[in-house]
Amino acid sequence: MNLNDYEAIWKRQEVPVGACVDIAALRETFETKRRKMAATLFARDLIEASAGVFVSAVLALFWKHQGSAGWPIGLAIACMLWVTGAFIRERIRTHRSRLGPDAPMLAKLEAEIAELEHQRRLLLGVATWYLAPCAASILIVLATVLFNAPAGALADHRLLVGGFFGAYLVLVGFLYRLIWSVNRRAVRKQIEPRLEELERLHKSLLA
């Protein structure tokens, strides 16, 4: 036998003529699934973008309450809006760079690889673009409250204030480490194996 014989058998292979499935039911299932996916993505985008805006609004009210002495809270608001901006930028980038399933195989593969590499960078760099601005924002607000406290209040409670800041720094350090570990594990267990698989496929396609 040679390959031509196998090709002939392949061509004689009976494949279904007609839909062989209930198209109306299929359409209904797909539309439900599509709407659910769109709703989930929208809810996630809304929560991520609005959380930072909500916190900024609360901080703005607090600044108003503090008066002009509360000006550093403006910096805290800037930090929160930076995080919100990062989420929005990320959503726009994902939306623009996404290739549909109808793209040529090579282009689709390269897009998937680029997306995974980007996700890896985001997860490993979460301390820079997410944790640090949030922690800085909280620190600025706390410092502003303390420095604007009534005269003598700080001096009377030096130990307490020092202890509080110390505890805050320890907590933030612990949270940073925990979040970084969780993200690193996600990268190692999920992203990197998938990336290796796709890079191997990419290499074999171009070999």
Binding site: R12, Q13, E14, P16, C20, T29
Partner: peptide
């Protein structure tokens, strides 16, 4: 959605 026919057949040629 389950298919309505058995698709794993060879043609009767």
């Amino acid at each position: 959605i389950e298919p309505e026919v058995d698709i794993s057949r060879l043609s009767a040629d």
